[in-house]
């Protein structure tokens, strides 16, 4: 049994072969004809198809292009990212009981300064990482967002504990608990647990380091 391609390209696909069907559709998407939009019609095209669908070719001249060219070199990227991941200043923000485990994991016994994770001292305007420790209520969510907005770029968010990930104990039937903080801030690393052990926190930090090392500038 065969059925016609849903993209109307004339191909016939065997029924029951989901893998083949997805492969086929991906191929169709790849072979869309790209057309160059002249500069006068560019704004119209963006309005029509959205920013994500219109590719803009970069101008290969000027100081901005040179700076971007240098930033894109892998050695420069590595050095800058290495500097960032080796001195992560966290914000001291305690929302719930996960902060007890967090305080345990920055103790000398576990010593996350080995991995460049410093003590939570100083102002949040100098910080890089915000570790959301536990339940976030709707009233606290505003404060979390304000703190996140006050931090300078680059910044990363770690969601610690089941409540910060998905609402945890308060999922689905609570009237004032945020069901996962990714509704309000972009989260980089999730650390599951209720509360997570210090080893889990350190594993999350290592994952965050890996992520920072692979980032583009």
């Amino acid at each position: 049994m065969y059925y016609a391609c849903p993209q109307y390209c004339g191909a016939r696909i065997k029924t029951g072969s989901f893998g083949l069907a997805t492969l086929h559709s991906r191929k169709v998407v790849e072979t869309f004809e790209e057309s160059v939009v002249p500069e006068e019609e560019r704004e119209d095209a963006i309005k029509r198809y959205g920013v994500g669908r219109v590719n803009r070719v970069e101008d290969k001249k000027g100081t901005n292009f040179i700076i971007q060219w240098i930033r894109r070199r892998s050695l420069v990227r590595y050095l800058v990212n290495w500097g960032r991941l080796s001195s992560l200043f966290p914000v001291h923000l305690t929302t719930a009981c996960c902060s007890v485990e967090f305080a345990g994991s920055v103790s000398p016994r576990y010593d996350p300064e080995r991995f460049g994770f410093l003590n939570a001292v100083g102002s949040l305007r100098q910080s890089d990482v915000i570790v959301v420790e536990g339940t976030v209520t709707t009233k606290m969510a505003q404060r979390v967002r304000v703190i996140y907005d006050q931090m300078p770029d680059p910044k990363w968010v770690v969601a610690m504990g089941a409540c910060a990930i998905s609402g945890g104990l308060y999922a689905k039937d609570s009237y004032n608990v945020i069901q996962g903080i990714d509704d309000i801030v972009p989260v980089d690393v999730y650390i599951p647990g209720c509360p997570p052990r210090p080893e889990a926190v350190i594993q999350g930090l290592l994952l965050l380091r890996d992520k920072i090392l692979g980032e583009y500038l």
Binding site: G167, K172, D173, Q179
Partner: peptide
Amino acid sequence: DIPPLRKDYKPPGR
């Protein structure tokens, strides 16, 4: 919304 601890209150969920 209506007072949240009444039984006919529906929590928003996700």
